[in-house]
């Protein structure tokens, strides 16, 4: 009898994990697709606001105003992808699921920085830098959640 209860408990745990995996997979895929759609749409709109890593400004008729702008985002992978990544960590190699996480985070951070610059009437952003930090749930090796900051100097033309 006790053995039966133990087996049932183990099974129940398995069911929970599988349910989380399925939930993570479905919700995660929908969220990612929606996020990419939004990123691409906004990137199209902000395409003329050029972001560069160069330090020297091109010659301009009137000296522009410059000011610091930044954008940041904290983003997390879903349960399913984290599970896949853990598997990957056993065999080593490329972790695709985290690549898309970081790609989304970087592009989102740039977009937010561009939006701030646009509100200031900027035409370009110079000397842009990235800063990435991992926010994990206490366990050192799990990446899972990252913060990406993009910052640079908005160049606002005068006159």
């Amino acid at each position: 009898m006790e053995l039966l209860i133990e087996i049932l408990l183990e099974l129940w745990q398995l069911v929970v994990v599988v349910a989380l995996l399925i939930l993570g997979y479905i919700a995660g895929s929908i969220a990612e697709r929606r996020h990419y759609k939004s990123i691409i749409r906004r990137e199209d709109g902000l395409g003329d606001l050029v972001v560069v890593v160069a330090k020297t400004l091109p010659p301009m008729d009137a000296a522009p105003a410059t000011t610091l702008v930044r954008g940041s985002v904290v983003i997390s992978v879903d349960y399913f992808k984290r599970f896949l990544a853990r598997l990957r960590m056993v065999f080593g190699g490329r972790i695709h699921t985290y690549e898309s996480l970081l790609d989304r985070a970087r592009r989102e951070a740039i977009l937010r920085m561009q939006e701030q610059a646009r509100d200031l009437g900027a035409s370009m952003i110079f000397n842009m830098r990235f800063e990435t930090s991992s926010i994990s749930k206490g366990n050192k090796n799990a990446v899972g959640t990252v913060e990406v900051l993009a910052y640079g100097t908005a160049v606002i033309p005068r006159g």
């Binding site: 919700a27 969220a31 904290v74 997390s76 992978v77 879903d78 349960y79 984290r82 926010i135 959640t145």
Partner: peptide, 22 residues
């Protein structure tokens, strides 16, 4: 501390932006 935040815990399952942390 991510565990303190219920929304953050949920987002760890479904993925996406953690607005509170941003």
């Amino acid at each position: 501390h991510i565990g303190r935040d219920i929304m953050a815990g949920l987002k760890n399952i479904v993925g996406g932006e953690l607005k509170g942390y941003t």
